[in-house]
């Protein structure tokens, strides 16, 4: 078969992708909605599927993220990732949040093993590594986070 180098997937990998933690966050996303106190807003667009996600942050004078929320439509992976993101970053300094961005995205794209950090619940997103077409779904919210912090006005795209 010509595609011999593309590994074929077992049911385990599918279950790994759609772990119960992921499905739980996809069906009951945390911090879903608008944030009236937002100081930073950013939009992420996945042109492959047309999904859009809006991330809002409330950042105080000391650059600490006091609150976060997101809204939009997305697949289970992108919604779960955004939901887990908000849980992770609330209470963090912007720089710490950016460090999470680096570690999580490198974990998801498989370039490094999260720089040695224990990703905790976010480990669950790692299932996408067996599904190259889905990595962008998992990283979308994280790119929106970076652009919200760096305050770029342009919507970020996963392309």
């Amino acid at each position: 078969m010509s595609s011999g180098h593309v590994q074929s997937l077992s049911s385990d990998e599918l279950r790994e992708l759609y772990r119960s933690l992921i499905l739980d966050h996809a069906k009951n996303p945390r911090h879903f909605g608008k944030l009236d106190t937002a100081t930073h807003t950013s939009e992420g667009i996945n042109p492959l599927c047309g999904d859009k996600l809006r991330l809002q942050l409330e950042v105080d004078a000391e650059h600490r993220i006091r609150d976060a929320a997101f809204e939009g439509t997305g697949c289970a992976i992108s919604v779960a990732s955004a939901s887990l993101l908000t849980e992770t970053i609330i209470g963090l300094h912007e720089d710490e949040a950016l460090a999470w961005f680096d570690d999580v995205t490198s974990h998801l794209t498989g370039t490094s093993d999260a720089n040695g950090r224990d990703l905790g619940k976010l480990q669950a997103l790692g299932g996408v590594r067996d599904f190259p077409a889905r990595v962008k779904c998992a990283t979308l919210a994280w790119h929106a986070l970076r652009s919200a912090i760096e305050n770029t006005d342009e919507p970020v795209s996963t392309e």
């Binding site: 599918l14 599927c49 997305g74 992976i77 599904f131 889905r134």
Partner: peptide, 29 residues
């Protein structure tokens, strides 16, 4: 309420290739 993208991945896993997304017809969607 399964997102089409998730359907596409699961179907592919079963060897079934379909298209998911806006089909280059966003106004229709």
């Amino acid at each position: 309420d399964i997102h089409p993208h998730d359907i596409g991945t699961i179907l592919d896993h079963e060897g079934v290739a379909i298209r998911t997304g806006h089909h280059c017809a966003m106004p229709v969607m």
